[in-house]
Structures are given as structure tokens and as C-alpha cells.
């Protein structure tokens, strides 16, 4: 059976979770940009977990855990969400179909590995990719994947595999959509809350593996990569850092530019010139992160054991961490005054 498709406005975004938030909220009458979704959801972060290895490589993330941006934005804006996971695959399919038949576009958590419409070279087992399904036609679903330039379709069997991928985390067929969006939203309050949270996440968690401290922690480890790990493994670790920082879904420079775009938009919206100044500062730090990725890429390419290049990379990271200390410290101080 097929139903009349919902007219769903697709906007391409840098990162899937922000993109789904932005597209779903816009559909429901609340137009917010991707950077705004990212900022209000306090998405920016840094964490380095040497003991949590994926394929033998330590985990590094430039953002908070998947799903949390969504939770924080909805809570902050007073938006009520329906969200459910399913043990049973048939029930998951029925719930999706019944929502679509009611004309509701639905957010889904999927695995990149099982989405055939994505370019093959990008398809690794990443299980926290958010997409919107907004209709169905025969055996296909209509998909708005925010990282793609245009809408696409997916066969029902492929979608089922993607929704029931195994590993960490397991999507378990999770689906969600907003059920109530309040009329008068106090953006100023939400912006203050979002910035406070990020500033505190980045500078106040008393553990060396979170926030700007973690950047220095990584810098310290990275300096010794060639000596500790040997040539080959050192470049693999570096390559992974680049991928976490630059691959689809990061908007480049590990989300720093998206956050800078948010600070600029927020500064204009609530008339706070200093936010725009911090946006400029963060853009500069983003450029430094890019410099890091560029040099790291060259090392990977040359497969050099050159200890001095690792030392140089480590120094760039330390500079990034101090710049971010300053920016988020300033945000923390100033945001309390408004």
C-alpha cells in the first residue's frame, strides 16, 4: 500500500542529529537552524577515552554522546517528544507505518553500514546515525537523511537492518517525533542555558578525560605515540583522530565551526555583542584544529616515525586547549551577567 507523501522540507546539514532536529522542528512549525539546534542542545564537547577502544583504537569525540543533543534541546524549549524502542522488529515496523499513515514524519536511529544510499566508502559500523522517514511507497520508505544533498528512498528490508544493527550502541528500532511544541518560546533563556551547560562541560568536569583538560591529556599521549606504539599503530591512531574530527557529521574542525555559527546567531538574536566576539575567537580555534588535521594527515601519508612532527602536533593541541579554556571560561563568566 502507498499513501500520499507528506510534503517534507529537506535541508542538508553538517551533522545528522542537529539536522534531524532542525528539519523535524521546522516541519512542526518551529524553524530553527542547525547551529541553533546544536548550541541549544549543548552539543559541543571533547573527550578522550584511552581505555574505551573501538577496533583497538582509543575513542575520541568532539561532541557529547549521541541522542543527548536531542534530549537537551527538547527539554530546554519545552518540546514534548514521543520516543520508543522496540524489542520486536515487526512492532517497530508497525509503529513506524502507523505514524507515517497519520502523516507524521518520524526520526529514526540507524546504522550507517546498512544505508545503501550513502557512498560505500563512508559505510562503517556507526550505529547512531539519525534520519527522518516521511512516507512510504510500496516496499520503499522515503528518507530525508540530513547529511545528504537531497531526499532519497530505502528498501524496507535495508531499513530494518539499519534499525536493528548490533554493537555499541544498539538502536533497537528507536523512533521519535515531537508531539507538542509550545507557542511562545523564550529563546533567550534557552540560549543562556545551552551556553552555560557547554561552558561547564568544557571547563568544569573534574576529570582529565573530559573537556579542555582532555585535549591536553590527548596532547600528552600523542607526543609519545611513535615511541609507545611504533610507526604503524601511531599513524592508525592519528588517522582515527582525523576521521572523528573531519568526517561527515562533524562539519569540519570537530564541530567548532558549527558552534561558532551558533554563537554568532545567538549573539544577534539576543543582542549580545560579546557572543559574536567569542564566535570569532572560536572560528580561529577551529582553524587551528584544521591545521592539526592537515599536518596529521601528512604524517599518515608519509608514514613517518619522525618524533618531531608528533611533538609539533601535540603543541598545536595544547594551543587549542588553552584557546578553548579562554573562550569557554569567558562564556561561563559573561553568560551569568545577562
Amino acid at each position: 500500500m502507498s499513501i500520499a507523501p507528506i510534503s517534507f522540507e529537506h535541508h542538508q546539514s553538517a551533522h545528522c542529529e542537529n539536522g534531524v532536529i532542525s528539519n523535524l522542528f521546522r516541519y512542526n512549525g518551529l524553524p530553527i537552524s542547525e547551529p541553533m539546534a546544536f548550541g541549544l542542545g549543548s552539543g559541543l564537547f571533547f573527550t578522550h577515552l584511552p581505555f574505551l577502544k573501538v577496533n583497538g583504537i582509543p575513542g575520541t569525540s568532539y561532541r557529547i554522546w549521541p541522542g543527548l543533543i536531542f534530549k537537551r534541546v527538547s527539554k530546554s524549549l519545552g518540546i514534548e517528544m514521543y520516543s520508543e524502542s522496540f524489542r520486536n522488529q515487526q512492532k517497530a515496523k508497525d509503529a513506524l507505518d502507523s505514524a507515517l499513515d497519520k502523516g507524521i514524519p518520524v526520526g529514526l536511529v540507524t546504522s550507517v553500514f546498512y544505508l545503501p544510499y550513502l557512498p560505500a566508502v563512508f559505510r562503517f559500523h556507526f550505529n547512531a546515525h539519525n534520519i527522518v522517514v516521511y512516507g512510504r511507497e510500496c516496499d520503499n520508505y522515503l528518507v530525508s537523511d540530513p547529511v545528504m544533498g537531497a531526499v532519497t528512498t530505502i528498501h524496507k528490508d535495508d531499513l530494518m537492518r539499519a534499525r536493528y544493527a548490533k554493537g555499541v550502541p544498539e538502536p533497537n528500532g528507536k523512533m521519535y517525533y515531537p508531539t507538542h511544541i509550545p507557542q511562545n518560546i523564550d529563546f533567550k533563556k534557552a540560549i543562556i542555558k545551552g551556553i552555560s551547560k557547554t561552558a561547564s562541560d568544557m571547563t568544569e568536569i573534574p576529570l582529565p578525560i573530559f573537556g579542555t583538560k582532555a585535549i591536553r591529556y590527548l596532547a600528552k599521549k600523542l607526543k609519545n605515540y611513535p615511541a609507545d606504539l611504533g610507526d604503524r599503530k601511531a599513524t592508525l591512531y592519528l588517522g582515527n583522530l582525523i576521521r572523528m574530527q573531519e568526517e561527515i557529521g562533524t562539519g569540519g574542525a570537530g564541530f567548532r565551526f558549527i558552534y561558532a555559527a551558533f554563537l554568532q546567531e545567538a549573539g544577534k538574536l539576543i543582542n549580545q555583542e560579546w557572543l559574536i566576539e567569542q564566535s570569532v575567537a572560536l572560528t580561529k580555534t577551529g582553524d587551528l584544529w584544521r591545521d592539526f588535521a592537515f599536518k596529521a594527515g601528512r604524517i599518515c601519508k608519509n608514514r613517518s616515525t619522525d618524533g618531531t612532527s608528533y611533538k609539533e602536533l601535540s603543541e598545536i593541541l595544547i594551543e587549542c586547549s588553552y584557546q578553548e579554556d579562554k573562550i569557554f571560561g569567558e562564556l561561563h563568566k559573561q553568560i551569568k551577567k545577562i
Partner: peptide, 13 residues
């Protein structure tokens, strides 16, 4: 695309 990202992807494959 960007050079470092391409290199890292190639390396992963």
C-alpha cells in the same frame, strides 16, 4: 572532500 580526511579514509580501508 578534504585531503586529510581522504588520507584517513584510505588508511581505514
Amino acid at each position: 572532500g578534504w585531503e586529510p580526511e581522504n588520507i584517513a579514509l584510505e588508511q581505514a580501508w
